[in-house]
Design a protein around this nucleic acid. Sequence first.
DNA 1: ATAGGGTTAG
Length: 549
Amino acid sequence: MLRATIEALLTHAKYGRSKLVLEAYQRLSCFNFNPNNYVFVSVIKACTSEGIYEHGSLIHSQVVECGYESDVFVASSLINFYFKSGGLKDGHKVFDGIKKPDIVIWNAMIAGYAEHGHVQSALELFHQWQENDFMPNISSWNSVIRACALSNLNEDALWYFNQMMQEGYLPEDITFATVLSACTSLRAQNQGKFLHVSLLEKGLASDVFLGNTLINLYAKCGNFKQANVVFDRLPERDCVTWNALISGHSLHGNCTEALKLFHDMQKSGYHPDLVTWNALLTGQVQHGHAEEALQLFEAMEGQGPKPDTVTFLNVLKACSSMASLKKGKLFHTYMLESVTIIDLSVCNALIDMYAKCGSLEDACSVFVALPKRDAVTWNSMIAANFKHNQNMKAFAYLKDMQLEGFQPDEVTFLCVLSAYRQESAIDPSALQFICTHMAGGISLSQEQYSSIVDLLGSKGFLQAAGKMLTKEFMKDDLQAWASLLRHCKMFGNVHLGRQCFDHIQSLDDQYTTCYELMSALYTDMGMWEDAHQIRSMQSCAEGCKKSFM
DNA sequence: ATAGGGTTAG
């Protein structure tokens, strides 16, 4: 009986049936018996995949009682368990208790760090360990590549993969899956094709899992010809196979094709799941077919799976783009009736929807009722108020946002900017905000900077605009400098205008516009001699160019 | 029999 139960436990473990493993272990505890290390490994793995922290700690103490705490296999599964269930400290404790950690333990640590987004620690461990003359195995490489991929360092993931290949390691199926998914994020189709060839050589291209990954890559890159080739050659398909293709078409706006596949999939005997429906919805909403999206949602209500947050976000976006307050309100009521708690992201979308459908009042009611807010919530309220020409209120929200400990981000900033671009005069507090946050941590692109310089200049805030151009990455932006010079001419600021002119000229003495603007500025101010001097500089520069040719 | 690790919707 004891033997049979152990056998059963191990068999369940082999097929990943974690609940049954735990049940068998429960039955074992009736016998007076000390489990061996293999039973412990199986049970700890089961706890890991079930995510039950308390039970895992209990097993840990039994491991210690039975004297298995330094068994590398038991220890590594414990490390894995603690890292996965959030107990970083406990994972380290197990690690520290091992006198001579071997490769299995090291790999578990690398994978654990990766899981927690601590790429740096994972990489440090990997490199440190190589310096001490340890040879990584394929699992170590898999973990390092995955560590990069999990933290969105996809280029690094590819770099480690290439390094691994150069050092002569043979990639496994999982290696391919991880690297292919990094290629997908990068839309790196050519790297992907190279991997595809290797898969064909190894006979792995007909594996469903890898086939799905390949289809996903090609479809995301818009290469439907290749995606279909892989699809057609797959001897076995599943729901994910269809979803990968459908979501690719949705992403690229081929909504009709996505719908056709949706029907084909059912004809072939596959049931569309939540992912399928959401992929279809997203495609319609992102490509401006709000009406169709709402019809789709209705169909989903009738025959599809229970909608979730993604569904809600899509439907709300459809209502916003139709600017239909009536539809939006109806849907809000529907959500209140169908779920107990509405996700914060959905509430933020509700605020946005109400503002876009013309009801600042309803947007406020949603906001007031929120038990918790995030930066997106605040940005939505700020945008809502600006949209309804409540600039002072918008600034009040901005202040409250900071009081609650949220720093204005790029979105906040652009929101303030676009609101003030339409105004004839800028409120001094807005200007103060813009300037304060230029010095702060908001990272804007060069184009955004340029447009701010242009905005500030056009309203006569020439000094503030000039200060922005002192940023290192703005030094070479001739367009931005010329824009400030143009505004200096408009507002008659000779001093700053001349600084702009000198800067532009030092970068490109063939930039004709700057000579014209500067001499016009001098002329406006009655400084004829200076105007004349600029014109001779211009003909000199043009002369130099001619003699050069 | 003993590590670790993969795909689809926002």
